[in-house]
Amino acid sequence: MTSTDTGERRRAADTRPVITDLLVASTVESIAGEAWVALVGEDEVLVPIPGDLPVDPVSAWVDVVGPWTGSVVLTTGRDTAADLTRALLGPAVPEELEDEDVADAFGEIANVVGGNVKAALPGPSALSLPDVGAAPAVRNPADVCRIDVLWRGQPVAISVQGALPALPLPHPPHENPMHENPMHENPTHENGASL
């Protein structure tokens, strides 16, 4: 007896969750809000109103590697990142704030938010050390859960974004899969300047 390989079993095994299957924006907002209150200050709230990020923002992120793989990216203006650092350090803030201080503090906020996002995802997963700079590119726009908030009136974006390209869309076996998936074509983020 012979059988025809239709590819159905391979496609079923290729099923990979996207972040919107696993996480809702309100969870990210709640995690970030708790981090802000604990790290930045008791009265420091994030207001869920989108604002325009500056043209030269700075991002801090951690990578999550596990059943879902991607990055948790915080993006804001450089002055706002410096203000966050001052608030985080409180009385321990140095007289002269250096770029290194800002990278360290903003990275730690990303680490705390990212660690708690990781805990909300199926595990086990590994968490990277934080990185600061231009945000990693969005690989698959369908695999992004993003919130835009204001802190002290300044915009902050928090993006939980997959690191893997989109899977091929399921297609009937007789169709040619080579020209069907627009997700592979130069994914760009619709909103962030360097995202």
Partner: peptide, 12 residues
């Protein structure tokens, strides 16, 4: 802690 900010906070 590898974060100086977090070291400062816990130290304080």
């Amino acid at each position: 802690d590898d974060s100086r900010a977090m070291r400062r906070i816990v130290t304080a």
